[in-house]
Design a protein around this nucleic acid. Structure first.
Lengths: 252, 252
DNA sequence: CGTTGCGTTGAGACATTTCAAAATGTGTGG
DNA sequence: CCACACATTTTGAAATGTCTCAACGCAACG
């Protein structure tokens, strides 16, 4: 064996060579402009599971794109427990909610080994002055986030345990699908506990729903490995309207 | 009496003369630049209670500032019921969540007679090219909205009925206070039903909590008129951290 | 091989919802 | 201004979904 067998150098893929560029920030830029973005991006060492990208209250300096792995953001409740606010998969951008307070309002933690692209915000703003399309893209990102959060509010205030978990699974499936992974079979990066925390359910409830879904042939789950067996019924449980459900049905 | 006794012409107050300018979009601009913003703003006739500003699915053209009155935004659940996503008070900006879809993802309806300033979005973008500060302000607005939505998600997934309503009342009080109104005594523009809908509670639960709060001397409520009697305890119920609670305590 | 963390399962407790009905408030036309 | 219809709010009692508590199984790990 040579040194570094089978190991790509994950920290130094330029945006123009990154497989995620069509989903990530670069999609706002033309091919020649991408390099300008590329130049301001900092690519650190991989984060190990449990390591923090930033902590609630840290000064806001950058937004981040997930290259590989998965990140959760969470904030502390009054009683000091954690409340998970989002999960981020590859190509997704986090950190934008700190923009108007100068500190991050949440902590961001790696749920598994994770590669991150860091984009210093002041430089991103400078770049935005030059490329209006980049600016618009950032605004669209935030607008999208607002809509997603509102979907989440709807889930939390109107849906029961079954519907919440169905929605969550379908949502994950659709995000995996966009990234070119299978949407019928994937690996959850979060524990049952984290899922429950995010969905406003007790761990035990999550577990029970999973067993019930499995009994009814909706899914097949072993640990964190999930297979969606009956996407149609799962979607109808999740309750429609929420985009891309049809796509899941057609592909899963 | 002359014609128009006691009636100011509410539709045509320039931004620079508007009492809300320090809370609203103009706060991003210098005095001389405000007039540029002023020029693109459309001020329509007042909306009567129940009238819509826009409907879910309408093409996204403008963002709106509430001048007086109150607006609710809502979306339809799968079963066709409405799910209220936000309440907007004077000086607050709505419509931003439509930015990336080209259609409004929610409907906006007047809860009482309401004056609105409409800001056509394409012109606002043009103006933003000229005034970076305006652009930054818009982003801050969205970032703030995201944080508020996340507070809401926390409320919905972790707080019980008492805590939800306490939080809601304290939040309203603090928003009234910023606008120069009393924070200890105000009028709700929404019905119990709308409140429950927004907070993820049945109407009956809202009603019960109100009576209980009243029995315990936390508030005094007759119909939509609310007086906060024990702001300290109400705040502690609402659960801290969430900004301006201290201010309410000090002033109420 | 015991320990530790995570997931599952069961039984009972509890908060909120649901259903039903009474009370109160609001608007309308006579 | 009253009377009536209709909407909203309040109150009560029963039903229900989820949580809590407790125990157990299983896999990973030192």
């Amino acid at each position: 064996m040579t040194s570094k067998p089978n190991v790509r150098q994950p920290g130094h893929v330029a945006c123009r060579d990154c497989s995620l560029s069509s989903l990530c920030l670069p999609l706002a830029l033309s091919l020649q402009d991408i390099d300008q973005l590329d130049r301001i991006i900092k690519r650190g060492r991989p984060l190990k599971k449990g390591e923090h990208l930033f902590l609630e209250g840290d000064p806001f300096t950058s937004v981040f794109a997930v290259r590989s792995g998965a990140i959760k953001t969470y904030t502390a409740t009054n009683e000091g427990e954690e409340q998970i606010t989002s999960f981020y998969l590859p190509s997704e951008i986090l950190g934008l909610s700190g923009m108007d307070t100068d500190v991050y309002p949440v902590s961001a933690q790696a749920m598994e080994t994770t590669m991150i692209c860091e984009i210093p915000f002041d430089q991103l703003e400078t770049l935005s002055d030059r490329f209006p399309e980049l600016r618009r893209h950032m605004m669209r990102l935030m607008s999208k986030k607002i809509r997603e959060d509102q979907q989440m509010m709807m889930l939390l205030s109107k849906k029961n345990a079954d519907e919440r978990i169905a929605t969550f699974l379908i949502n994950l499936a659709s995000r995996f699908r966009r990234r070119g992974f299978s949407s019928q079979s994937f690996r959850l990066s979060m524990s049952r506990n984290e899922m429950g925390n995010y969905l406003g359910l007790a761990v035990e409830t999550v577990s029970r729903v999973f067993t019930r879904f499995q009994k009814n042939g909706l899914i097949f789950a072993v640990g964190k490995e999930i297979e969606i067996r009956d996407p149609v019924q799962l979607c109808s449980l999740a309750g429609g309207k929420s985009v891309d459900l049809e796509q899941i049905i057609s592909t899963a």
